[in-house]
């Protein structure tokens, strides 16, 4: 008889507070939060990390992380993070923004933060819709996609085409690590975690602006089930927003995480 002992394979990250999140069941915001908490725990950065929360569904992000957090005005998280990082360069500063916050009202702030090469990390949640306000069309809404403000599907003649942030920010000279990942299944969640780790590593090494774009779901406002929303990401979103590494600083190549 072989005697055995219980080994913990996975447990709730230490950087999470003991509160119930306000996100809808199946929302991938929770997965993104968890990956950030895991990466910060692994790198031992909790005591010196300052997060910047956005406006949007993730407006209460500061309640869910056991670390310093500030709340930025709508879209201004990169500007706030710039100020914090310049005053406290030894601290790790990250922003957590949705597509309405980052790609719409905060477009100027994110572009200029990347152009200046601010040494901050941005976690960008792209779910192709405005979640908190009730499912209106976002700059990242797919062509033909029905939202409450485009009930017949997004008409690209009238309202334009989706904005691909990772591609735009990758051509900025100041950016050091720009990638797009997805959160629709376990394999892609693992890749997303690696990307978040590398983005924080880029900041620790002073390689400039780093951003991880995460394709996320919004089952409530897409008005489909959780299972279908994961298929929607794989079948509809990834063709419009291809996953990949858009810019990786040569200093990060070969880094094992």
């Amino acid at each position: 008889m072989v005697s055995t002992t219980a080994e913990v394979v996975y447990q709730r990250p230490e950087s999470f507070t003991d509160v119930h999140t306000h996100y809808c069941p199946g929302c991938t915001h929770g997965i993104a939060h968890r990956l950030i908490a895991e990466v910060i725990d692994e790198m031992g950065l909790r005591e010196k990390t300052i997060g910047v929360a956005p406006v949007g569904c993730s407006v209460f992000a500061y309640k869910y992380f056991k670390m310093d957090f500030v709340e930025a005005p709508h879209g201004r998280a990169p500007a706030m993070a710039t100020g914090i990082k310049r005053v406290l360069p030894e601290n790790t500063v990250f922003t957590y923004q949705g597509d309405g916050d980052l790609a719409s009202i905060g477009m100027a702030e994110i572009m200029h933060a990347a152009a200046r090469g601010e040494n901050i990390t941005v976690i960008f949640i792209n779910n192709a819709i405005y979640g908190m306000t009730g499912g209106q069309m976002a700059p990242t809404t797919l062509p033909g996609m029905k939202t409450t403000s485009s009930p017949f599907g997004r008409d690209v003649e009238l309202t334009g085409h989706p904005i691909r942030m990772a591609e735009i920010l990758a051509i900025m000279d100041g950016s050091g690590y720009i990638v797009r990942r997805s959160l629709h299944n376990a394999a892609n969640i693992r890749k997303s975690k690696k990307a978040i780790r590398l983005a924080f590593e880029a900041q620790e090494r002073g390689l400039g602006f780093s951003m991880v774009e995460l394709l996320s779901s919004c089952p409530t406002n897409w008005k489909i089930s959780v299972r279908d929303s994961m298929e929607f990401i794989a079948d509809k979103m990834i063709p419009v927003f291809p996953l990949g590494d858009y810019k990786v600083s040569p200093s990060l190549e070969g880094l094992k995480v």
Partner: peptide, 21 residues
């Protein structure tokens, strides 16, 4: 294997595995 914990948005799952001594 821990895949349930990897996809859990609310970090509600703790995974254990038997390990031979």
């Amino acid at each position: 294997c821990g895949i349930c914990a990897i996809v859990c948005p609310d970090a509600a799952i703790t995974v254990y595995r038997e390990k031979p001594v």
